[in-house]
Nucleic acid binder design. Structure first.
Lengths: 350, 350
DNA sequence: CTGAAAGCGCTTACAG
DNA sequence: CTGAAAGCGCTTACAG
């Protein structure tokens, strides 16, 4: 294999800062300052340089900038791509960066199995590529790992309640409240034996918060005896088996509060296959309020956690950190129940 | 705003090629050659350098490499993030790159509206960041734009049948055959008045190929008089209105062949809301065979176009181009019908 | 407020 | 097969 360099076409094809400086009749350093909106540039000089940049359609190269300064690129790490909820977060991030020089680049942990391994490999790849900062969504790692990472570069975490001193910011939906709202909503509609289909392994703080909220609200509303948490991994087959077992038992729940809309859709599917009616035989509630909840065949009641707002806020906070903030900030969005037929008012039993 | 540089922590913290060279007792150039697997390095030297890299846990910085050579980063551009089909393509790309030094970075065109504007802005952002090559999925742009782009950097396009000389490679599902298979399948199950719910605006070659396949097969199977193509944009409301109109007309179709699973789910929703049974009143077929087709509430028959294979192949071809190939290659995957209840055998009519 | 020079961490001819 | 030196396109002290 030859060592040709077809990647970069004829060199000199791309305009550099040097040519802009020459065209504007100023120094290279002056152009650099205009580029970075740095102080110490007169309006006249700025105008001249801007005009030359426009005229030559100059675009700075991120990798050259990254050699000493910033790349104006931030990395987004998603836990998976199949949940349309993440698209909402992504739009929020993009909206926040729209009028800045920053650009978001995504990486996704698709490989199942050794999740920690995969995500740390991806994180290192992002650091190798000089990301100015990282937004990690729904991390499946120890808080200590995030703390260490936050010491290396600006970091904002979405979906992680445990804090790491000043090492990173967090942006969350109030998961404990979200779970409480679900229990209240279901109780209000006449359901009492409410089971929770949670996620395993359950080491994430989001999972813990939702389980706590569920337990507390069940107890406070006098249904402590009906508390029933079952767990499944995200794998489809595992969800199906778990739901089927739950619905086949002698003491079938009235309602299932599912970890995610995706799990709830599977629950609807299994219940349907078992010949059960929703919500007459069993009510189903999801989390995320994804676009598929509205489909008539799902009509899934769900908790809206404003993904777009989460993304927007995370991106803003990250840029602040890149700009020098060193103390942690934490942002929490209130969740909201969106009622739909899958958990509608219970008919009087015969 | 001060000009501090919190992005890069204490400098010197990261190991450089120079320190590796020193540790191994060789020149910097030698280390670079080992890094690039370039020729002209003895096994002994290679082993020494590898050991030092390991010992110091050295990792090359992509932006420094990009200054003269490659960044070992390829850009993936998706038309949207809400379709789980793209997750399949992504896994394929990742699988292909797994044992290479390359890393994929994603960008997504979320902003609706001026689609061309958005995607070209994203493409420029990727070029600014020195991507070694680009994979563009389902581009909404003129072939000429792709041809120009292919002249600037290695390019593979997924979902584009029009070719651009040697400027870029294409990877496709055989969309014309896919559409034919759907018509054959539906006819075989007793449906004849088969409408096609296509995408507007219909300037993409994929759309054209599917429409051609649909028309030809309808004619060849003697149902030319029943040809009926309606179009909707991806916007949910538009799909709903279009499907409702189609199903309310005086001459209701027996079956609807939908542009995408996502559209098919909407079609199922609308039909359900109208009190129609599927497939008794109207059969529905989708395209992409996404994970949601299997849910009992959808049971959506669909065309599988092997997203993972498309992604795998595209990534391989892109790496070949980066390595110097200058002639175009074109790869086509055969589609496959996955039968499900939404288009099951038609019951004899009363 | 402005500019000349050094340097970021690699790769690339080129000389030995 | 190996290495010393130049250079990629920016930013950053530093001097004026």
């Amino acid at each position: 294999m030859s060592e040709k360099e077809p990647t970069a076409p004829r060199s000199g094809e791309r305009i550099t800062i040097r040519e802009v400086a020459q065209d504007a009749g100023v120094s290279v350093a002056a152009v650099s300052k205009v580029l970075r909106d740095a102080y110490g540039v007169s309006d006249a000089l700025r105008a001249k340089v801007r005009a030359s940049m426009e005229k030559l359609s100059y675009r700075p190269r991120a990798s050259a900038r990254g050699m000493r300064g910033r790349t104006y690129t931030i990395g987004l790490i998603f836990p998976d791509l199949r949940n349309p909820f993440f698209a909402d977060i992504y739009s929020g991030v993009n909206a926040a960066l729209e009028r800045t020089q920053y650009q978001a680049m995504q990486g996704i942990n698709t490989t199942s199995g050794a999740l920690n391994m995969t995500s740390s490999a991806l994180i290192e790849a992002m650091i190798d590529r000089q990301m100015d900062g990282l937004v990690i969504i729904g991390p499946n790692m120890e808080t200590q790992v995030l703390t260490d990472l936050g010491a290396r570069l600006p970091l904002v975490v979405i979906g992680q309640h445990d804090r790491g001193g000043d090492a990173f910011d967090t942006v969350n939906n109030d998961d404990q409240l979200g779970a409480r709202l679900v229990v209240r909503y279901l109780m209000g509609n006449g359901y009492r034996k409410i089971a929770m289909l949670s996620l395993s392994p359950s080491n994430s703080s989001i999972i813990q918060q939702r389980e706590i909220g569920y337990r507390l609200e069940m107890m406070e509303l006098g249904a402590g005896d009906a508390i029933n948490i079952v767990r499944a991994s995200q794998v489809v087959r595992d969800v199906q088996v778990t739901v089927r077992r739950l619905l086949s038992g002698p003491d079938r729940p009235d309602a299932i509060f599912c970890w995610t809309d995706l799990m709830a859709f599977e629950a609807i599917s299994v219940a349907t296959e078992m010949g059960l009616s929703i919500p007459e035989d069993v009510a189903i509630v999801g989390y995320d309020n994804t676009m598929f909840c509205d489909l008539a065949q799902n009509s899934l009641a769900s908790v809206d956690q404003s993904g777009e707002l989460l993304g927007l806020q995370a991106a803003r906070m990250l840029v602040e950190r890149i700009d020098g903030r060193v103390t942690a900030e934490h942002f929490m969005v209130p969740p909201r129940i969106v009622a739909r037929a899958s958990a509608g008012p219970r008919q009087p039993q015969d």
